[in-house]
Nucleic acid binder design. Structure first.
Lengths: 159, 159
DNA sequence: TAATATATTTCATCTCGCTTAACCAATAAG
DNA sequence: CTTATTGGTTAAGCGAGATGAAATATATTA
């Protein structure tokens, strides 16, 4: 029998395999650790921030965050600049090279989805759109139901 | 307009957020690194194997694999035993504690899917089952089309 | 102004995971 | 039987990433 649960499991298996595979490839090609990638995506999606914000985000001491930033700056992926409003804080932002790296990764995923789309018959599309919409909304509802408290630092960003 | 691509992106966002969140939580709670988790899942899904098989799987030297195994044995998650057929090889297998850890993680994912299922109206189910089936098959087809060569060591296992 | 709090960096030190090289034991090949 | 070859471990050393404690510079508060 094909219950929703089993179909869902099959789908997430193939989807996860793909995602993980892409992630690993990205990590190897760029030579970046998971943490470093997380920092880049945090800055891309979450916008510029200070060193200790990053520390909070990663769940790590300020000293560790500072050193992490230092390495990324050394790779020309991040730049540090003084916040004119409060000259204690160093505003962190992606360099053009950093942005390019992030966009490449996003593009790879987009391309896969595009390919997937073309692998489907046009008359299948409509049903799938409807189904995925429902599924996404159900998942979002679950998310808000199950996390009445803030997800706090676990707000992870990924390629 | 809601193209399939955009729906797919929304879905993968929420799905990935969930998966990553679970993964990170598992990693923190168990105190295990990504590599260590990968080893446990490799043994769970792939069955017992020798030290160098593990090294191949992880893409590292035998020495590194041996040390990794040593740490996991120290945590009572793996056990080493001599293969009676070829006494050079040490057969690796999960201990009960190791199995329990893996099963916990699998169970968490299963529960989420279960919850997701119940968050859907029963009359939606049928459509979603059909849609996901199509989607999964399309993705699998893509997979086999795009990887005529063996994916080799990239055969990752995940929680 | 003086005292205190905040943001970041630096330093010494630790652990993890990796590498290469040397090594031992068991098996396979000549 | 001798000589590779193979599977695994050990040792020395490296770099990443973490920590706590101390240092520095800027803001805030009493």
């Amino acid at each position: 029998m094909t219950t929703l649960t089993s179909v869902l499991r099959s789908w997430s298996e193939v989807f996860m395999r793909r995602s993980m595979h892409d992630f690993m490839r990205f990590s190897r090609q760029s030579g970046l650790s998971m943490t470093q990638i997380s920092v880049l995506f945090r800055l891309h999606y979450g916008g510029a921030c200070g060193v200790s914000d990053l520390g909070d985000h990663l769940g790590v001491s300020n000293a560790a965050a500072s050193q992490m930033v230092d390495r990324l700056v050394g790779m020309d992926l991040l730049k540090r600049s003084e916040d004119p409003a409060d000259r204690r804080v160093k505003t962190l932002a992606l360099t053009p090279k950093g942005v390019a790296l992030v966009l490449d990764s996003i593009e790879a995923r987009r391309r896969w989805m595009e390919d997937l789309t073309t692998a489907l018959a046009p008359d299948q599309e409509q049903h799938i759109v409807a189904a995925l919409t429902m599924l996404t909304q159900a998942a979002l509802k679950l998310e808000s139901d199950q996390a009445p408290e803030p997800l706090s630092r676990s707000k992870t960003y990924y390629p």
